[in-house]
Write a protein that binds this DNA or RNA. Structure first.
Lengths: 239, 239
DNA sequence: CTAAAAATTTGCAGGAACTACAAATAGAAT
DNA sequence: ATTCTATTTGTAGTTCCTGCAAATTTTTAG
């Protein structure tokens, strides 16, 4: 058989080492969120590595920073670094956002009164905005990533990974609304495009938000985004 | 000063070695396209490496193919491989499409009678479709990339690199149409979203085209794409 | 509190990607 | 034929990253 055990392909965000979970039958994503010493330490280590990486990257440029430097700066062994992040870039790019809760998910699919846009916007913006608590780090990371093409590429990839999830949600919503894939073969394409539209608009709204001084609340952000989309899709330039 | 000479960051598509071009004042992209022996050999080598890479990737899986294997298979030294492609993935992802000609560019900006969509679609589809001559290779590459997450990521990055260029074109078109950035601050965002919309729709149209038997001509492709966008932007689900 | 169990960190060896440098080879120009 | 320029290659070395097993730390159970 010789099955490849190269599972952790690129960016893991999970525990550094779950190999000993023998009797963890099918615990899957049963994240242990208790406030235990071990968990606190893990979070601290992860954060410490991230900070070191970004600070060094900002000071010397990502290309000129070695993993060894990051490890020294964060007092951790190289092996541990890779246990946490899998690859060098992992320490630079944004952490995986927490997925919407089961309730948020359900609410969106059943669409209680909200439009697809409204629901999707809510979902995406909570996912993308509210997760970040450390503004300082967030901004530093943002600066570094946007001045380093290779990192920007990774970041985009990570984002589109998340977007795939929303595509799935939209399909569920469509199905809930009675639209089936058999009847509309382009349904999946449609979902993809809707996500691209919303997150595209949102991305630039966010950029504005980040460039400004993080004023503006969610409502006005949504307002801006909606207007932009309206304007674009409503007007001239279509065949 | 100590300026970094790490220029060829990621994917070069240009000549393997232009370092001796001393008196090439500012030749920039003055590609020597003459049908000379040297040029033919270069093209042959490049193609040979590409074929070897993709064939090996398809047979053993990209992760299990080493650059050395590719080099052996294409009878080239490892150093030459990196001269051509800069990194391992370079041999797998699609080559950079030729940019629109100056005329195409001008026509789009001046928009002789066509809508922004129509013009953009024409531009993008010629750029993305007509470039590929070797269907065999194209399909093999497509298969490999879409079964290898890491490669897909690269491919997407390369595409979005090209899209940036179109964003620039649209901005020019907007300006030509009398819309200035000062009056509409969101102009750039708008351009980005228009590109996302069209190329998003086109991407899936292309996928269909590739999945099918490459039947369907450009017109019907454009038709499908336009309808999809119409449908999405026209209907329900906006706030 | 103590001992066993589980998770985390670490060191070490090694493979593979990639770069700098300079020499060797092949094609183009005169 | 000869000189000039572009391409290929080899060598040595750095860095990223992985597998493995031992050492350490935290949790759990008694």
């Amino acid at each position: 058989m010789s099955v490849k055990t190269t599972q952790s392909s690129s960016e893991d965000e999970s525990l550094p080492n779950a190999q000993h979970a023998q009797h963890a039958q099918n615990a899957q994503h049963a994240q242990d969120t208790r406030d235990t010493l071990r968990n606190r330490k893990r979070a601290a280590t992860r954060l410490s590595i991230r900070r070191a990486a970004i600070e060094l990257g900002l000071r010397h440029g990502h290309e000129n920073v070695t993993v060894e430097m990051i490890c020294t700066a964060s007092s951790v062994s190289q092996r541990t670094f890779f246990n946490y992040f899998g690859n060098k870039e992992g320490a630079y790019v944004s952490p995986r956002r927490p997925l919407p809760t089961a309730k948020q998910h359900r609410d969106f699919i059943e669409g209680g009164g909200t439009s697809v846009f409204g629901g999707l916007f809510g979902l995406i913006s909570t996912t993308f905005i509210e997760a970040e608590t450390d503004l300082e780090l967030f901004q530093a990371r943002h600066r570094l990533i946007h001045q380093t093409p290779g990192l920007l590429e990774r970041e985009k990839a990570k984002i589109s990974e998340t977007e795939e999830i929303f595509v799935g949600y939209i399909l569920e919503r469509f199905r809930h609304d009675g639209r089936s894939t058999t009847e509309t073969p382009d349904l999946e394409d449609e979902a993809h495009i809707v996500v691209a539209l919303v997150s595209g608009a949102l991305r630039f709204a966010l950029q504005k938000w980040a460039a400004g001084n993080f004023t503006a609340n969610r409502e006005s952000l949504m307002q801006t985004t909606a207007e932009l989309i309206q304007h674009i899709t409503a007007n001239e330039h279509w065949p």
